[in-house]
Simulated assay, not measured.
Amino acid sequence: MARSEYIRGTTVRKPNRVRRDMPYHVHETGRQHKRHNMSLGYLLFLSLAMVLMVGTLAWYISLQSQVKNSVKNIAALESQLNNLKQDNDEAYNRANGNVDLEEVKRIAIQEYGMTYATEGQVVTYSDGGGNDYVRQLAPIPEVGKN
């Protein structure tokens, strides 16, 4: 093989001509540049999508903050409720501990003339709803009188 033979692919290639249909083109300097073929409509669409994304993210962060504040507020109110229940139970126990039921019975019978109800004096009414109280809409009739 002689030195003067041409070997395919060993020569310096000529720069490609600029083709408008390709995404990249080469300038005379040999640098490759990407062509930007974005239309105004596509650019507006991308901008609107970005604004919506940022707005949604801000709204989501705001909701997360509200939820976190609500949870903290609920925890504080539950703690306050537990403290009030405990204080109420302690006051109730102190009040019950200070009452002598025998003394109350003695005062009711001796000083106020109260007596135990006899069997004919007790009348039971049913309100049908199972409530803890009866709403009186009319006078309660006396037993034995019609």
Rank of each mutant, 00 (worst) to 15 (best):
A108I: 03
I61A: 10
A75S: 14
K68R: 11
A58N: 08
N83K: 04
I74C: 03
A95Y: 07
D100E: 08
Q66M: 13
V122R: 08
L84C: 12
L48N: 13
S79H: 09
R106Y: 01
G113Y: 00
L57M: 12
Q86P: 01
E103L: 10
Q64K: 12
K68Y: 10
Y112K: 02
N83A: 11
E119C: 05
T56D: 05
S126P: 01
Y60E: 09
L52Q: 14
A117W: 00
E119F: 08
S65A: 13
L57D: 09
K72A: 08
T115Y: 05
N82A: 13
Q121R: 14
A91R: 06
I109P: 00
A117H: 02
M50W: 05
N98S: 15
S126E: 11
V104E: 14
G55P: 00
G97T: 01
K72W: 04
D89H: 04
I61Q: 10
Q110I: 15
G97R: 00
N88K: 05
W59S: 14
L57G: 14
L48K: 09
Y112L: 03
L48S: 15
S70Y: 11
S79M: 10
G55Y: 03
Q121Y: 03
S65C: 01
N96M: 13
S65K: 12
Y60H: 11
A117V: 04
E103C: 03
S47Y: 05
E111M: 03
D87L: 13
E111P: 00
L81N: 11
D100Q: 07
V122A: 01
Q66F: 08
T56S: 07
K68F: 08
Y60F: 11
Y116T: 05
M53P: 01
E90Y: 07
V122E: 01
Y60S: 14
L48Q: 12
S70P: 02
I74K: 10
D100H: 04
A49Q: 11
Y92C: 07
